[in-house]
């Protein structure tokens, strides 16, 4: 239906979005790359000089950098494991015939709509607070010493909060995928003598494979950028115990005013994200045809 007159118009209509995104992608990233090779501190903005690879070397030799990389990976993997495993379990459960399924769905999806700073504050003060939190109330009720979560297990605490935020997303997507599972296929397998466990392993899991991939990859993109939860709860501490790469770069830029160093960190974050993005694009791209 593409006739000659519509083609030119179509090009005109695409242009603004493309140009905007092109600028948005190239200009700041180019500037980051440029700054990453400068000695540039906002506390001393008069003396800007070429730094070569110094900023990268500095990052590479900084013990905080390796702690941040490790924390980033633990955070991402921890949250992914929790959300995917629990997500499958919950999706299977609420896909069963139950009373009030709509309401159950609404309750389960809710945490996803809670903005990150609020989620972090709720958990920090209502649930995990060593004196007034619900966990402390439970501990006292059963007669054990309440845990000071953010001091003793800072990274674990953040993993719990973030997992709570993303569990609804995983559940909802897996549930959607589950509902598209062919009922006749299941019945055929049952006729063929497959029990519930082998039906799950041989039919349900392969059917969910694509949805699981999508969940893992999309969550990874967002989890690499976790920021507000850390800012509100631990400030990356104690020490660097809960500092991830995003938070480390934020600290370099905004608290140490080290523009060059933060830019070098940014470039490293881009490389990391690109590795993940590569796989995501392949998974999503197949759906276009």
């Amino acid at each position: 239906m593409a006739t000659r007159q519509t083609q030119g118009l179509a090009r005109l209509m695409r242009a603004p979005a493309i140009i905007l995104l092109l600028i948005w992608m190239i200009v700041p990233l180019g500037m980051t790359l440029y700054y990453s090779f400068l000695n540039y501190n906002l506390l001393n903005p008069a003396s800007v000089s070429w730094a070569g690879w110094f900023n990268y070397q500095y990052f590479y030799t900084d013990p905080a950098f390796f702690a941040a990389i490790r924390n980033t990976l633990v955070l991402v993997l921890g949250v992914l494991t929790i959300t995917v495993v629990l997500g499958i379990a919950i999706a299977l459960l609420i896909d069963k015939p139950i009373w009030g399924q709509g309401m159950v769905r609404i309750l389960i999806i809710s945490p996803f709509f809670v903005m990150p700073p609020v989620a972090a504050l709720i958990w920090k003060n209502m649930i995990m607070h060593p004196s007034y939190g619900v966990f402390a109330d439970i501990a006292r009720a059963i007669g054990v010493q309440p845990v000071d979560w953010f001091a003793q297990y800072p990274l674990t605490s953040i993993i719990i909060i973030v997992a709570w935020q993303w569990l609804p997303f995983a559940t909802l997507i897996l549930l959607t995928a589950l509902q598209s599972l062919d009922g006749e296929q299941m019945e055929a397998a049952e006729m063929d003598g497959a029990g519930p466990v082998s039906r799950f392993i041989h039919l349900t899991l392969p059917h969910l494979a694509r949805a699981i991939t999508v969940v893992v990859l999309i969550q990874t993109i967002f989890l690499l950028g976790i920021y507000a939860e850390i800012l509100v709860t631990t400030n990356g501490g104690p020490g660097n115990a809960s500092t991830n790469l995003t938070y480390l770069i934020y600290r370099a830029a905004r608290l140490n005013f080290d523009i060059g160093g933060a830019a070098a960190g940014g470039i490293i974050a881009v490389i990391l994200a690109n590795i993940v993005a590569f796989f995501l694009m392949r998974a999503v791209g197949k759906n276009l045809d």
Partner: peptide, 18 residues
């Protein structure tokens, strides 16, 4: 479309400085 999607993959913190 794929390229547009890829811009979403850019970590925010990477362009924080500029």
């Amino acid at each position: 479309l794929m390229w547009m999607l890829s811009t979403k993959m850019m970590p925010a913190v990477a362009v924080l400085v500029p």
